[in-house]
Computed example of a mutant assay.
Amino acid sequence: MNAATLSILLLLSAGLFATGFFGLLARRAILFQLISLELMLAGPALGFIAGGAYHGGQTGQAMFVLILILAAAEVALGLALYLALRRVADVEDADTITRLRH
């Protein structure tokens, strides 16, 4: 892999992260926010893979596996919280959650 390919992949990685960040800020629905968080995690994962391939080491792939594990845990916890909120209070909007009280 040459430096030009690395630059393109790192720009793509930054674009994925920026798209996820914009989606997180723009959307109020919880499911769309979870999808945006996944995009935000995919950006650095691609960057680690590209950096590891450029330097010829295995550390980029190891970091990708750690990010993949983190993303899976985040999705499991986020969906569990979303389903619990839907069952208890029929909440889909993140703004509505801040107004819930016991």
Rank of each mutant, 00 (worst) to 15 (best):
M40W: 00
M1V: 05
F48N: 15
M63V: 03
L12Y: 01
Q33H: 04
A14S: 13
G56L: 09
F64P: 03
F48Q: 13
G20L: 05
G47W: 01
D90Q: 10
A62Q: 13
S13A: 13
L77P: 01
L68H: 02
L12A: 13
G56I: 06
V91A: 14
A89W: 04
G43W: 01
G52Q: 11
Q58S: 12
L37F: 01
L68V: 10
Q33A: 11
F17S: 15
L25Q: 04
L66H: 03
S36H: 02
L6P: 05
A80Q: 08
A76K: 05
R86Q: 15
L12P: 02
L6T: 06
A18W: 00
I35R: 09
H55D: 15
T59P: 01
A4V: 03
A29R: 07
G57N: 14
D90V: 05
L85Y: 06
L39H: 01
L70T: 08
L16R: 03
Y54A: 14
L41Y: 00
G56V: 07
G56A: 11
F64G: 07
A18S: 08
I30S: 09
A29Q: 10
D95Q: 12
D95I: 04
Q61W: 04
V75L: 13
I97G: 04
L12D: 04
A89C: 08
L41H: 02
A76V: 11
T96I: 03
T59E: 14
I69F: 08
L41P: 03
L85H: 04
G78N: 09
L31A: 12
L100C: 10
L79P: 02
L24D: 05
D93R: 05
L12C: 13
S13R: 02
A94F: 07
T96F: 00
Q61Y: 03
A3Q: 08
A45Q: 12
I35F: 02
I67C: 13
L46V: 13
E38N: 08
M1K: 10
P44I: 07
L25N: 09
D93W: 02
R28E: 13
A89R: 15
L79E: 09
I35M: 13
H102G: 14
L24H: 05
G23V: 04
A89L: 06
L100R: 10
